[in-house]
Design a protein around this nucleic acid. Structure first.
Lengths: 210, 210, 210, 210
DNA sequence: TATGAATGAGACTTCATTCAT
DNA sequence: AATGAATGAAGTCTCATTCAT
């Protein structure tokens, strides 16, 4: 009544504000890590005052955790194994690797922040770190499942070792690209990685069966 | 007994103080990264007042860079290839991998800090990052040289790709161990990595010669 | 009585806080110059914590500049020439001189700080210095205009020389009073100065016409 | 005996070190004032460690006072009135003014620092300020004496007023030149100043005699 | 005659957070 | 749903000074 509800540009819009804050936070925390991300910087980047950030998020820890949580699904989606008819096991593994690589090239902030959180050892572990490691474990489980289903005959220990190795290669190649930029063809390297791991897996399985 | 108590109280021993500061700084920065390392924390850990740290180091950036520089040699030493007589090429490569892995288990702070620095993208790049990347390039060159000399017949591009892959695996396995702790047998994983890369190299060389 | 106690405790009144900070800053910086003015001292004098000062002003430089800017108008107002009917040219000039002198006696902080800023040659020139010199140029232009309009027949060069001399006398007499205190009758000295400059001007004009 | 006294370049030489420190201190304090002059900056400028400065001077206050004291004589020498035979009273006064102006152009640091010290009002007055004001009083006395001897018939009050005015003009013109640089011909302005003051003096004397 | 090293105090500034509106 | 203003703690770094050698 007091204020006619014409299509105001700047109507209070909680959802949109939250998004803007998160967008700013992903970028900054992806570049500068946990400690390097100041509320003031996020505020400046999203155009909302610092106190508004505290309306949407309990505290800084909560904000960083939310950043991780938001990328959650997108990230895990890349790990879906294509249908059986879509090709040979190797082709299917390679396809997954390529997808993951592409998603990393497109949105590197998630993993960059995640790895920084993972490497840090601070007295009070940030919740974002916990969340990231959980997501990581889910991804790991998916890979282990892939290995077991695509390369029959692998014992559990081999699956674990191969999975660890697969994840390590992915992380390492990502780091490589972060350091050397476009000089590293991430998709190609991921595909090579997939192939080497697949080869190793089949050889391991063969050795065991023999 | 070992030393007469000439060091009355705590007076003036520049070299030792510098070491103490660096010791404190390696530990803290290896755990918390650049931003997470406060001069006050280093001061508390080494027992010297903050202002004394500034007698030995120009500023925080200089301190962190010195931390990287000090681990420099130790780190590169692990990359020395053993004598030709010491075994087959594969055995020699595996030995190097094992050495590197052991040095990482013993002193993970260097690489942990280095990777955190490498991942960050802060407006003013810390000097420590630059130094770390330089050391890294030297290590990379050593690996490339190893590949070329132990696996004849590799073209330059293959050498580069394999080197990138080798380094990436090392980084990734290190991260894995940092996250999962002793559950990861770093030495074993590094040896597996060495073998897989070596196999891939010989196959590449064979394919080319054929 | 005058105001109902709506201002519960001390909550949120931006404009008033800004004034309180500036009041404290004028006084302190007028007494101790740029370097001598510590934020802690201003904080103590105005009752607001140091961090609150940074809500209102970007940094110390900005604060000092604001101090200069606030006195700006008051200061320039003293240079208004009275109406033509109010007396002979000499009387009118003398009136201006008296006004300026009075304003200096009442509020010496502006010029004291300004002169200190003007004398300093620091690597990074404070913005307050720039602003002060600009205000000063405006004042100078007003004096030059007065000279040209009240003493016809002066060539441009003479006007400039007389203006420089007039300003110098004003600055110097102010300094004199700052050093010797009430022993110096600033108003009387400014009036004498006005007269001497006026005499010199008319003589210069006469010599030229002749 | 122990050390042959060949012309060593870097023999411990107290006198020379003291000079080097003072040279650095004049320059820095002349540019930045009391608070702006840090021992570290002086140390950097003279090449001697900070602790060496404390060997030569009790503390910062003492150093700044020494800076003023060293320029003392040079400065006062400029105020000597030339012999009676050297010209008319006006010519002689003008000569003194010219000399003072020249000495200010050559070595402005003394007066620049002095004026900054004079303008500041800090709780604990620096000794340098006291010394400067004393030198200034001596100079003032010399001027008063000049006035009384060259313009007979002036009563004491007029002498004081004229002296104040003469000193003020000198200070003000110096400030002007400091602000505007070479655009201000300090020697010419000082000569004009001398003439105006001399004229005023003779007129005052005449009025009184009449 | 000089100095390397140390040091507590204090400089400026940013931090995460709160609170009244 | 949001924000202007405030705030104590902590950040990095410089200060003047001292002391043992």
């Amino acid at each position: 009544m007091t204020k006619p509800q014409t299509t105001r540009k700047k109507r209070a819009n909680g959802v949109e504000s939250r998004q803007r804050i998160l967008d700013a936070a992903v970028e900054i925390s992806g570049e500068r890590g946990y400690e390097g991300t100041s509320i003031a910087a996020v505020s400046a980047a999203c155009g909302l005052p610092a106190s508004s950030i505290y309306w949407h998020f309990k505290d800084k820890d909560d904000l960083i955790a939310a950043v991780i949580e938001r990328s959650f699904d997108t990230w895990l989606a890349a790990f879906e194994l294509p249908d059986e008819e879509s090709g040979t096991p190797l082709e299917r593994v390679t396809a997954v690797a390529g997808n993951v690589a592409k998603s990393l090239v497109d949105a590197p902030d998630f993993l960059r922040l995640g790895l920084m959180l993972a490497l840090e050892r601070r007295p009070a572990e940030p919740r974002g770190r916990t969340v990231f490691l959980q997501v990581r474990d889910i991804a790991r489980a998916k890979i282990a499942e892939m290995a077991a289903s695509l390369v029959p005959g692998l014992d559990e220990e081999s699956v674990q070792i191969l999975t660890t190795y697969a994840v390590a290669g992915a992380d390492g190649l990502f780091v490589q690209r972060e350091i050397n930029g476009d000089a590293v063809d991430l998709v190609a390297m991921f595909e090579l990685h997939a192939q080497l791991v697949y080869d190793a897996a089949t050889r391991m399985a063969a050795r065991r069966t023999a």
